[in-house]
Design a binder for these strands. Sequence first.
DNA 1: TGAAAAAATGCATGCTCTGCAAAATCGTGC
DNA 2: GCACGATTTTGCAGAGCATGCATTTTTTCA
Lengths: 227, 227
Amino acid sequence: MQGMTGKNIASGGLRERKKRATRAALAEAAVRLAAEQGADNVTVEAISAAAGVSVRTFFNYFDSRDDAFVVIDADVGIRVRQALLDAPAALSPLEALREALAVELSEAERQHELWSLHAEVLRTSPHLLVRSLGAHMADEAGLAEVIARRLAGGATDDDAVVPPDDGSGREQRPALDLYPRLLAALAGTAVRVSAQHWCDRQDELAFADVFREVFALLAAGLPAPAR
Amino acid sequence: MQGMTGKNIASGGLRERKKRATRAALAEAAVRLAAEQGADNVTVEAISAAAGVSVRTFFNYFDSRDDAFVVIDADVGIRVRQALLDAPAALSPLEALREALAVELSEAERQHELWSLHAEVLRTSPHLLVRSLGAHMADEAGLAEVIARRLAGGATDDDAVVPPDDGSGREQRPALDLYPRLLAALAGTAVRVSAQHWCDRQDELAFADVFREVFALLAAGLPAPAR
DNA sequence: TGAAAAAATGCATGCTCTGCAAAATCGTGC
DNA sequence: GCACGATTTTGCAGAGCATGCATTTTTTCA
């Protein structure tokens, strides 16, 4: 494996691919085991064994055991933000938001079985549902930032994806404006509500369609940006 | 428990009052300690000691250490739901919701210092912020249920407060309608966004006022119920 | 006051999570 | 191919979290 002189294709080096694989394996193992025997009865040891790594390695990938149940796809947040930045300038912030999320949700529906199990796990252990909800909303902050950037006037300087908040909380940010936050909150709300609704009537409708409907309902009243 | 010589006044027996006090003491101790030395460096032992109870007792009140940082007021959810049920029938669901929450937020502002500390703790440890956000949203489900009841036609049969979801998840509920959920989600969103905004411009504005403004912005577009 | 109910406590136990250092693996230049 | 630096994995030890159970203390009410 030497001649890899120029191979930073889609996924990046081999090392990174392996990391993604390991992470995905851990997350999937966690969800499957939890669906079988209940999340509370699944130890980190069992998850690690199922994924073929050591316990210590598990904690190199997840901050806590519950994270493995909650964070199925670690960088969905990054992808959405990137999609927002890449969206054609002609789209209003709301439209761009709607499209970016709809695409992401359609993608998720491809792995229908895994997400179904995930939903079941969350349904049977409210403790994890709370964590999941919280995790979703943590993304809203990053979303608001990107929206603010877009509103501020494209700022196509680099289009480098905004990294997720490192969580240190050190850096005092310049007090985000209200409107971007409302947009982000609305988007998050739409995702959440449609997820709930979709979970109830599972298989009857396409997730993305439910989402578009809910999004439209919520968005109908938001005043247009001042610009 | 038949005698009960007419003493179930506002606070209910002495026993219950003591429990509330202990719980409050633990929560306050947790927040103060966390604000001082960082949440990560606060052990359950320290919290328990500060509140004057044993470690084992701590876990009789909170399911986990983090809960003590997050759940400052355990039954705010119950109060809001009760307020919704008690609200005059003349008010639209949105108005009732807005008033109930505004009252609650004003109450919270009375203990301004404690909430300030709480906000600081959440700001400095994102881990807890996620939990807090999740906890808020767990309330939305209960809220949606009460709203649905109100929409369904008052149903003043008993006006007994709806107990918080026991979290067992056993009972398959009859698939809540979409509209109540949207209303609940909107309310939760308003609380969250206004809390964020208020945290940035601390002391400049009254929390309740920010909330009303945000609520109005969000509500402006929600279509009226179909009935 | 005395008995029943509820709460607090101590103890034992298993699991979670972190820091540290050694071993295995990967990426790269030669 | 091979060696060297960088990254990742792993084991181990230790602190802290969380729960079940039996016991003691407190509250309630007759």
